[in-house]
Nucleic acid binder design. Sequence first.
RNA 1: UUUCCUGUAGUGUAAUGGUAGCAUGUUUGAAUUUGGAUCAAACGGUAGGAGUUCAAGUCUUCUCAGGAAAACCA
Length: 552
Amino acid sequence: MSEKRESLNFLEQIIEEDLKNGKYTSIQTRFPPEPNGYLHIGHTKAIWVNFTIAQKYGGKTNLRFDDTNPSTEETIFVENIQKDIKWLGYEWDNLFFASDYFEQLYNFAEQLIIKGFAYVDDLTSEEIAELKGTPTSPGKNSPYRERTVDENLAIFRDMRAGKYKDGEKVLRAKIDMGHTNMLMRDPLLYRIKHQHHHKTGDTWCIYPMYDFAHGQSDSIEEITHSMCSLEFIHHRPLYNWFIEKLGIYPSKQREFARMNVSYMITSKRKLKKLVENGIVTGWDDPRMPTVAGMRRRGYPASGIRLFCEKTGIAKRNNLQEIALLEACIKEELNKTCHRMMVVNDPVKLTIKNYPEQTHETLSAINNPENESDGERELIFSKHLYIERADFMEDAPKKFFRLSPGRNVRLKNAYIIHCESFVKNDEGQIEEIICSYYPDSKSGSDTSGVKAKGTLHWVSQEHAIPCTIREYDRLFKTEAPGTTEGVDFLDEVNEKSLVINKKAYMEPALHTYPKGETVQFMRIGYFRIDEDSTNDEFIFNRTVLLRDSWKKG
RNA sequence: UUUCCUGUAGUGUAAUGGUAGCAUGUUUGAAUUUGGAUCAAACGGUAGGAGUUCAAGUCUUCUCAGGAAAACCA
């Protein structure tokens, strides 16, 4: 009888309030990456927040590259970031660059000078830091703070004209050197950098700092809700100060907690070190938390989106469990992946009452979750491979698989009975001898025989060898890089990649294209890697069906 | 020692001042042509004190705990 109120996160509550009281009539958001690296799992949350909230309220989202530091930014990152955002399933309404606004920002700076809110400082960076004070003690005014408007204007124009060297002068806001918020202690607005910019070339030799570019860029684009991570909360008073002093469009900054994921790192510096030290093969190594890495691992974009949705938005520092990420990935993969049979660690199995020279074709449903995916053919014969782990000489009661005297169903085929086994000189099982019940065929079983478990298998003669890259989490510790005195490189899981070259796959897999993800029945999800050739089929392990970390 | 932010099951995230819910996790069970998925059940929570109130996870205040803030980075 009573309608269930939809629960809103705090950002949605703010937006609904703003819309209701007419503060804004529509909303506009933005995703503002700096083009100096690759997007990672942390960015996906920011992307998700900005795009889905705008979508929900019929608003728009811009992609804006925050390219105010020519020393670190490159075109290659601009391209990759766009590719990743599209892959994640989002489309921006406008593509902008902070550098599009350089002229406008310069004019803003002159306006501030004219109004007496900015001045040129000749101090060195060390001297500026010295006078800045500390969080607990106030700073002191620069001796250059009281220059006249005309003098400031003249020098600032000379700065733009290239009359000074890097570091010789800076433009600062004139706020309050005694402010409790250190960002309000006359922050730097412009610095001199005689450096080529990826977009503006050599047009400029002065570049605005983040604080003087970000809020004004938001304002120029009439961003209503500028949503960023908690670390920028101290910047908000400054963000508002510029907008107020310049009398421009009143964008509002709102902060939410960034998403951290257990066993992952997102520090750009540390990720770079992994690549440089050869611990991973590159930025798109399937173990990397980058969008490129997750894509190659086989994580579907829909699963990543689902993860962002399920983890929610709040203002508390959080560490999301990787198990939840993997649950989301599996939930999506389960809907779409074909169920295939691949034996990872083969042991021979011979069916003694099955004719030697013949084989038969059986049919298998590609995906029971999606009937329209149809069926495919399997080849069954006397000589098979099954998983070594699916046989136990002395099995406990709870072991549902093969053991002497026990029955088991071979998936899509027959129920077999284990008669005996053969060991080699080292005491290792070499061959398992079984008999089969001819009238127990899947789909037309009239045998009445019971089998507790079901095993996957391949035919020795028909199976195709393949390589499996068994990826695991990159780190051994839940929050790598956060323990004092411990180098994060020492926390790397040395078994994060095991290459398995002894596996056999069912023949039908041969026709599946690179980039396709399938389920290896009873094992997990695997993606056909781009490194595959006609001679070698290579799979990347995306995620296991069951979490093996807690057991054993 | 200053300022700001945040404290709800193991981990996350909800709850016009009025039934602490959901997901994940763990365990067990049912069913099953995957020890998956599905279904069912169990486990497990408001940091502490004081105040306001008929009623506080929610409002006020104090304590405690965690995080953040010093770059010519964003």
